[in-house]
Design a binder for these strands. Structure first.
Length: 883
DNA sequence: ATCAAGACTTGGTACGATCTCG
DNA sequence: CGAGATCGTACCAAGTCTTGAT
């Protein structure tokens, strides 16, 4: 069985199609890096991670051979359909940096991924691969037998389908099972994956100075907001009303429904502002009393009530450019609607209120499944991840082996991952990828069109007469689970999802989508108009969770809730002053719970921390505010706190902030007598915290603070810093504000593999320009004296220029150098900052649209096509709009 | 009061598409 | 025109929060 043999098998598996889908993320080993800093982390993380040590990079190169022909084992039995992955050979990991302390982390990621698209390739592959069959050595392959989870099973089998349970079982098993495996022993050479773990640590990026950054912003907010806020008080009602109205105009969100339901349903109420109002009022009032911010309505009024008012004058302001663009947008949207059938009834959207009903009629065609399976196997899914960081994670390999060995069966020749050489499969994979890349553009186009043709019917749904885009109508293909951070389940096999796993939600009168796979049927059909999902299935990795098919972000349904989200955040503006005063007062409350709530709220407000729900043991161990551990916060006298923890997606949050003394003291109290791994806020959890917040403002929850702080910061910075200048300069201002928000929210990205190369290239160019400058200066001196310029590097005589002309050139060159230096600085500053997330989720688009109108910046400079579609509801905002 | 199910928002990444510059 | 840089997206993982049952 030597290595090779297996390899061959491997090939078999894949057929292409299904390649595993993989995404890569690197996770990183974050821990490692940080280690230095925090021991804390360790504790937390605990996980062992220790293991690893080296980087992952194994990327071995591909050696050569192709082998494409490897064969597949004989029985290619079924394997899941995976698509052929595509991987790109990237250099994987790049460097890791050792970052010195804080360094941000980098991640080394590898790339690889396969995407669906690869499938196309598949075809080819098939030929190759499949055909081949090489003899594999038998070994492995087993696939045949095993098959992975379902995938493996041939269709027929599936029918039964349901086997699901079986599967489930498997899933359930979870980690535990895996664990036992262990023996991993090492990976052997062939495979190579040594487990190295990558010491890299790389992953985290953090910003270095984090501390600073954050603090700044925060402060600002506080101030600003407060000030501004003051306004309203009791006015709530009005506000709300206004809001609601606002909503209405835009898209016909609710359309028909609204009418009906609207009020009726409200019952629930829960949320929306509308309902809430009354309460709010009261609440607010109270508070206000204290403070006195009552700046009622008047103020608000100024701000235009958003929507409707727009008509007013302001619009006119908008420049042509702007306007044109806006118009365009509108047009488009309209068009779309037209296409579809629509009829909008734009009524007001009572939106919020309606409690539950989300639609009256819903028509769609279900979901599309990945290609049926081709022979290919689990081994391919694994092989394809060769140049990923996952290869250096024992947990990943263990989980994979656990699942794979089950498929192989007890009597299979392959007894361990270590003895398998996945290189041939990996190389085959690279080849397929290359082939695909080499396809002529016509071929690519043809494939694309074909795919489009197949998918088109699934791309749209009709909601109350309006044609809307469906978000993710493609069922997730089988693959290996790529959990982020140190996820206990990484590497587990994600089985194929079949129709019998899927529940469809559709209007009562709509035709039930035909099941795309002959002989099979949907698990269930529902007609629930209180939810927005079109279909769902249980997540194969964690059967207690669901995967939903929703409408796209550009849909009215999503747009409406997006708008409500921002309206709620704007409402917080009216309450924030009192809320801050209240928690400040409670920093010294006698009651511990009260004190913890106060401090937690403060952190959420000031640092934009997430709430921090409890997590299960079978998830990566990350924290949010309520789940902070004692070891995540270090008190630095006299009044600074250093935070260091892994947040959502295992992204490290490191920040040192100065806090009010009472907070500093309270944290110290919460820490005393506890070990580093104990909960800092032992009396708290998110439901208690949110329950408290709701008493302060209707509908208030922890995440509203993030939205509020992000949007208020943008609004504030834009208004404070926008100066006269050309569009490009204004865009820079915008980006700077955007960056500030991203830092506050700790939205990070990994450093691109080519970052350092890009930087040195720029440095080189600047140096060249400086030499040019020097030469120009010499020429200038000579010109002034009436002498001709010196010869150029090639010894040629340069043209005689007047001193003025040379002077001009010098100025140009200087400008060029300055620009390059600025660009370089920006690039460096943004290398670990992700601007997109806040733009998509946290910044009220109306702030941006209004600012663009006011400053004659074409909205397209800020929002790309999909954002324009997503924010269609915000495009007609009044130029005077302020968050 | 807890817990779990359920529904929906938020996040980072890999890769293909598109743009830019030599 | 081509390599590299940047942009735009699909993907799907990972949070938040609500609700209903116990």
């Amino acid at each position: 069985m030597a290595v090779e043999a297996p390899a061959k098998h491997v090939y078999d598996f894949d057929d292409d199609d299904d390649g595993p889908v993989v995404f890569k993320r690197n996770n990183t080993s974050s821990f490692k890096q940080n280690q230095f800093n925090s021991e804390v982390k360790k504790t937390l993380s605990q996980r062992s991670d220790g293991q690893s040590g080296r980087q992952a990079s194994d990327a071995r190169g591909l050696n050569g051979q192709s082998s494409s022909s490897l064969n597949k084992s004989i029985p290619p039995s079924k394997s899941p359909p995976v698509r052929s992955p595509v991987l790109s050979p990237k250099s994987s990991n790049s460097s890791v940096k050792a970052s010195p302390l804080r360094s941000p982390v980098m991640n080394s990621k590898a790339s690889t991924s396969l995407n669906d698209r690869s499938k196309q390739a598949t075809q080819q592959n098939k030929s190759t691969a499949v055909k081949e069959e090489k003899t594999p050595i038998k070994t492995t392959e087993t696939n045949s037998d095993s098959d992975d989870d379902d995938d493996s099973q041939p269709l027929s089998a599936r029918l039964k389908g349901i086997s699901s349970q079986g599967n489930k079982g498997a899933n359930t098993s979870t980690p535990a099972q895996s664990q036992r495996l262990v023996p991993k022993t090492e990976i052997k050479g062939s495979a190579e994956d040594p487990d190295d773990e990558a010491p890299l640590s790389a992953r985290f990026k953090m910003k270095s100075n984090s501390g600073t950054l954050i603090s700044k912003p925060c402060e600002s907010h506080e101030k600003k907001p407060m000030a501004s806020k003051i306004q309203q008080n009791g006015s709530t009602m009005k506000d709300k009303q206004q809001k609601s109205s606002v909503l209405s105009d835009k898209r016909p969100l609710d359309k028909g429904n609204s009418s009906d339901q609207s009020y009726a349903k409200k019952p629930k109420i829960s949320d929306t502002p509308t309902t809430i109002k009354s309460k709010q009022v009261t609440v607010k009032a109270e508070k206000n009393e204290e403070d006195d911010d009552h700046i009622p309505i008047s103020q608000r009024i100024k701000k235009p009530a958003p929507s409707n008012s727009k008509t007013s004058s302001m619009k006119q302001k908008a420049t042509k450019v702007v306007s044109s663009s806006f118009k365009k947008i509108n047009k488009n949207s309209k068009k779309e609607m037209k296409n579809s059938k629509y009829s909008k009834s734009t009524k007001l959207s009572p939106s919020s209120g309606d409690g539950q009903k989300k639609w009256s009629n819903l028509v769609h065609n279900g979901v599309i499944f990945p290609p049926p399976y081709k022979p290919h196997g689990v081994a391919t899914m694994f092989a394809v991840m060769q140049d990923t960081d996952y290869m250096s994670k024992p947990q990943f390999k263990k989980n994979f082996w656990d699942d794979w060995s089950k498929i192989l069966g007890k009597n299979h020749v392959i007894k361990g991952l270590e003895k398998c050489d996945f290189t041939p499969i990996y190389e085959w994979h690279l080849q397929e990828k290359e082939k695909k890349k080499q396809m002529s553009s016509e071929e690519k186009k043809a494939l694309k069109e074909e795919k489009l043709k197949q998918e088109e019917k699934y791309m749209w749904a009709v909601v109350d007469g309006v044609k809307e885009k469906v978000g993710n109508f493609r069922v997730e293909p089988p693959g290996l689970f790529r959990g982020r951070g140190e996820h206990p389940k990484m590497g587990k096999l994600k089985r194929r999802i079949r129709p019998c796993d899927i529940t469809i939600n559709i209007g009562k009168d709509a035709p039930i989508p035909e099941c795309p796979i002959p002989g099979e049927r949907w698990k269930d059909i529902k007609h629930d108009n209180t939810v927005t999902w079109l279909a769902f299935w249980n997540d194969p990795i964690n059967p207690r969770e669901f995967k939903y098919v929703f409408l796209a972000a550009s849909s009215s349904l999503k747009g409406q809730s997006d708008k409500e989200k921002y309206e709620k955040a704007r409402l917080l503006k009216d309450y924030i002053k009192n809320i801050r005063a209240a928690y400040t007062k409670d920093f010294t409350a006698k009651d511990v719970t009260k004190r913890q709530i106060a401090v937690a709220t403060y952190l959420i407000d000031k640092l934009a921390l997430r709430a921090g729900n409890e997590k299960d043991d079978d998830e990566a161990d990350t924290v949010g505010c309520c789940t902070l551990k004692v070891g995540n916060v270090e008190c630095i006298p006299p009044n600074k706190l250093k935070f260091d923890f892994l947040g959502k997606d295992s992204i490290q949050y490191v920040n040192t902030v100065e806090v009010e003394l009472p907070v500093y003291k309270a944290i110290g109290q919460f820490q005393t007598g506890k070990s580093k791994t104990d909960d800092l806020f032992d009396e708290l959890d998110t439901s208690k915290l949110n329950a408290h917040l709701k008493e302060l403002m209707p509908g208030l929850t922890a995440k509203v603070f993030r939205t509020y702080n992000a949007s208020i910061t943008l609004d504030d910075m834009l208004n404070k810093e926008t100066k006269d200048g050309d569009v490009a300069e204004k865009v820079v201002i915008y980006q700077r504000a955007n960056k500030e928000v991203a830092i506050i929210c700790n939205h990070q990205r990994s450093i691109s593999k080519s970052h350092s190369a890009q930087m040195s290239r720029l440095t080189e160019k600047i140096t060249e320009l400086k030499d040019v400058l020097k030469e120009l200066k010499t020429d200038l001196d000579r010109a002034k004296k009436g002498k001709p310029p010196l010869k150029d590097a090639d010894g040629k005589q340069k043209r005689n220029l007047t001193p003025d002309a040379i002077q001009k050139k010098i100025a140009q060159t200087n400008a060029k150098i300055e620009k390059m230096e600025r660009d370089m600085q920006t690039k460096e500053d943004l290398k670990t900052v992700a601007l997109g997330t806040s733009k998509i989720n946290y910044l009220d688009p109306r702030i941006t649209v209004a600012w663009c109108k006011r400053h004659e910046v074409p909205i397209e400079k800020i929002f790309n096509k999909s954002l324009l579609a997503k924010f269609a509801w915000a495009m007609d905002v009044d130029p005077d709009f302020r968050f």
